[in-house]
Nucleic acid binder design. Structure first.
Lengths: 220, 220
DNA sequence: TTCTTTTTTTAGGTTTACCTAAAAATATTT
DNA sequence: AAATATTTTTAGGTAAACCTAAAAAAAGAA
């Protein structure tokens, strides 16, 4: 696998994430995600097309080629392993790891990453509950659903929080929810889409629609 | 302290190292060290002068300002802590750490480096025996002398090897010399400046002038 | 000291990754 | 379907960090 610039890597990673939801990604979506201008996106798309990392016809949006996907997965592997390292070994808090990992992920030595993986004991998920691709780019695809879609009285475990702001962390800490928390939805209110949630034998409490949308769980 | 580009950091680091020997650094020396062209060096010197990181009058060579020195020491701190991490935790061999640390050193989070330092147990030297600056940029200045200058029968400990090629590593391994090895010079031969060296109670063996020049020791 | 060589700087060009503004293509409304 | 709005691309420009070639300054030799 060739080496790519930090900028190219950031584009590839962003496309990978956006196409999980959309299938195909548009110029504006990508410009917005990367806080850059549509014209810059078009420039880069031409370059990545020449490098055969993505499929792109002008005005038609784009998606990664299989080579592009492979590249994306190695970047995500680096990112998540560094996040795990920062949280687990250096005791960074949950909401601090992302920003630092954004920089570390661009150091591209394969040997470094594989040895780091080994040193960390081959962790399967990062501190946000996202799965870490293995050496071959294989990634666990567990069916994560937002809390809004969890049926009532189904026991589930929190595996991911999509928003990573300090504000949401604060709220989650207050409600005693973190990755690995086992919970059940007891009741949903159609009026404002809020819900009553219960952790173990504790008394149930209320969660807003906005919060529930950002909490992802796996049914247990 | 401000943030500097990877390129700026590499220039600052190179000047720092060169001025240890020379006091003042010339355009050609620096171009040679960084494998770039003299014209590029002049460009960068102008920029670093504006940023007040160095003293520079056209045609007069340059040296770092006190601010420049501070910056250099934080980069060296990052580099050597990462080298220590790679060797100690990830089990990289001695001659592999440098190349990877060259990339990691440009990740500029102060918190990352201070936490890494703590995680590693505040090591005082990197795997090559070079001292690691502390959080305030203080660096141990132990009088390291090349083996060529060590008087006969003075016990000393190997603290540094200046050349870091695979070839020298190979030779050192064969002779059983590494950082921390305690040795004594038994005899010097003026004809070719070779010397007889003895490690502990083992039989003495010969070291060439070229090798001795690259081995640095501290008297114990 | 003057001439020659070496070193350093200037002038002008390239590439990467951005940008703005305008043109072209596509989508949406009426 | 035509008009309008939005999205995307093109055209042309900027800054960083490099380059080559030529000019200027400094150093060394005759």
């Amino acid at each position: 696998m060739l080496n790519y610039s930090t900028s190219e890597e950031n584009y590839i990673k962003a496309i990978f994430h956006l196409q999980q939801e959309d299938g195909t990604v548009t110029t504006n979506e990508l410009a917005n995600e990367l806080k850059t201008k549509p014209a810059s996106v078009t420039d880069m798309m031409k370059k990545l097309k020449v490098k055969k990392l993505l499929h792109y016809q002008p005005y038609q949006g784009f998606r990664l080629s299989s080579e592009g996907n492979k590249v994306a997965l190695t970047i995500i592997r680096r990112h998540r392993l560094w996040e795990y390292f920062l949280a687990e070994k250096l005791k960074f808090s949950w909401d601090e790891v992302h920003a630092v990992a954004e920089h570390l992920e661009h150091v591209s030595s394969k040997k470094l990453i594989d040895k780091l993986d080994e040193f960390l004991g081959f962790p399967r998920t990062d501190p946000h509950g996202d799965p870490i691709p293995d050496m071959n780019g294989k990634i666990e695809t567990s069916k994560q659903i937002p809390l809004t879609e969890l049926a009532a009285n189904k026991p589930a475990v929190v595996c991911h929080v999509s928003d990573q702001s300090t504000e949401i962390l604060d709220l989650l800490r207050h409600k005693n929810i973190s990755i690995g928390t086992k919970l059940e939805v007891k009741k949903k209110f159609d009026f404002d889409d809020s819900m009553e949630v219960r952790i173990g034998r504790h008394p149930a409490f209320t969660i807003s629609k906005q919060l529930a949308e950002n909490i992802f769980v796996q049914i247990t």
